[in-house]
């Protein structure tokens, strides 16, 4: 199963990584996505995830253009072709 992951703004610059396709074999959940992402960006995955294994509070996540509340991330089950956007909190206007 392939999931597209994209990063925005300051997060993209901190990670040095804009977007990529992550191959999920076996498990289809968010922790598995992060585990595969860690193989690509290494220790920088700690910029996204906190010590408890949750998404950092200064970030937001959308899947297929729908924002996901952090407590709901654990319930996510990806499908082939899903698009995951991980973004800093807003600063527009």
């Amino acid at each position: 199963m392939k999931v597209k992951v994209r990063f925005y703004a300051s997060l993209r610059e901190k990670l040095g990584f804009k977007e990529g396709v992550i191959n999920l074999e076996g498990n289809d959940d968010f922790p598995s996505l992060i585990a595969e992402l860690k193989k690509v960006i290494g220790w920088k995955v700690n910029i996204i995830m906190d010590e408890e294994g949750g998404i950092r509070k200064n970030l937001m996540v959308s899947v297929n253009n729908t924002l996901i509340n952090p407590p709901e991330l654990a319930k996510l089950r990806f499908k082939n072709g899903d698009r995951v956007d991980i973004m800093p909190l807003p600063s527009g206007g």
């Binding site: 925005y8 703004a9 300051s10 200064n58 959308s62 909190l89 807003p90 527009g92 206007g93």
Partner: peptide
């Protein structure tokens, strides 16, 4: 206006004489 600034996925980088800075916390 307040909601757009705090909740819409739009980000701002200031380019100043001292360097470039993403606004992380408004």
């Amino acid at each position: 206006v307040d909601k757009i600034k705090h909740e819409a996925p739009i980000w701002k980088k200031e380019v100043t004489e001292e360097g470039e800075y993403w606004i992380e916390d408004i």
